[in-house]
Amino acid sequence: MARIEAHIYSEVLAMDTTVHVILPQERQPYIEDRPLKVLWLLHGGSGDETAWFRMSAAERYAVDYGIAMIAPNGMNSCFTDMAHGERFFTYLTEELPSVLSRLFPRLSTERSDNFIAGYSNGGYGCLKAGLGCPERYAAIGAFSAGNKADVPFANDGSPKAHLRMLAFGDGDLKNTENDLQYLAIQALRRHAPLPAIYHACGQMDPWRDLNEILQRFFSGLEGNPFRYTYRQADGFGHTWEFWEKELLSFLDWLGLTKTPGKYLAL
């Protein structure tokens, strides 16, 4: 396996940024020429591109399952095109896939090989990316994820309110591009290929109510067009123990299989 810290220039962000890439390395001679499946991993509100690899054993799972992992930095944007700030959604869903497929030719660009997952604000971000760009991702793994449009906003001058203002402005998000339900309905109306959704929340998560609002919405869609699965985990809160467990559950849920010994590991 190769772990790569890549410093790239983003034209969309108009700045240098860092993205972490895990590439499974097979043994020589290289026989298989199949492109690597890709899991995009988004961090939460206080994280960055290193979060998944520092706080979980994600790299070990990349080797076990023979899947590439890509973790970009979205700063405090929730991976949106910010109201006051940079266009992280466009960076994540348009520019980065094309930049990385050129730097690392083994990455598959097929929709069926691309999955996106995240926790907390990154859980919202991965749902937004998958629902907003359903032609790019085959499946979404959202852990401890609510819909920002379901959170009433009152500008109380707190640091949290300030961050919300920067990312989303101060208006109501219902029926905007930042509303997951709106994006889901738009995708349904376009008859686009829809991503499958795996959603999980800890029973002790302080924002469980927001997760459950989303769960009721997707569970209420006739015919379950997103193949939506919701799991509540007893005894878990808004923690890395939970997100790591769910990362593994998501990989299994995708139907990926382990390939012991095929890829080089530490």
Binding site: M1, A2, I4, E5, H7, V99
Partner: peptide
Amino acid sequence: MAWLHVHYHSEILMMP
């Protein structure tokens, strides 16, 4: 220019 720090495995050197 992209600048990459790469940690990888060498079979020949038998180590990362």
